[in-house]
Amino acid sequence: MTYQIMFSFDSNRCIDCKTCEMACNAYYGLSHVHRRSVLSLKQEKTGHSIHLSMSCNHCRNPVCVSVCPENNFQKRRDGIVVHQAHNCRACMRCITACPFHAPKLNPKTNRADKCNFCVERIDRGLNPVCIENCVTGALSTIINADKQNPDPLKNSDIPIRRYTKPSIFIIDKKPGKIFLRKDEQV
């Protein structure tokens, strides 16, 4: 039975510390390229400023698969989209086509590079490094075993493109509550 493993992001908890970005770069020895980035944006409806930690969303319909002339992208049975860089010719198609800018050109290897959900760790029963190092617990993984593929962003107000069916679950920012003491009338 196949399933989809996906990132879950709680925007109430993210404090823009960028530890996830740094942990990923340190783990993979990356410089001048980020597989994960924390973006700050404003929600139109609520006007809330939120931070959003994004990397590859391991989409249900990954556009990188259809644009790569070398057919270098594969979706594993657990839903993780992996890039086999050894055949990459740096044609830049995936880099420009991805609506989330997940694949980036690695200047060291001169090949496309993207988040692989730390597959080697997942295979050992561990969490990806970004999740392992997230100090507030904003990032986590969830598994969607539902064959009907419900849209994980159905109830989210985050303005991201959805035609590729990104496999990311986002918990929207909730307004904080302020409790004020009512002065008793004398």
Binding site: N61, P62, V63, V65, S66, C68, N71, Q74, Y163
Partner: peptide
């Protein structure tokens, strides 16, 4: 036929749009 995976994604795009 090894490229059927690409064709599948394209069929999904065609359907969607």
């Amino acid at each position: 036929t090894a490229f059927l995976n690409k064709s599948y994604q394209e069929a999904k795009l065609a359907l969607r749009f």
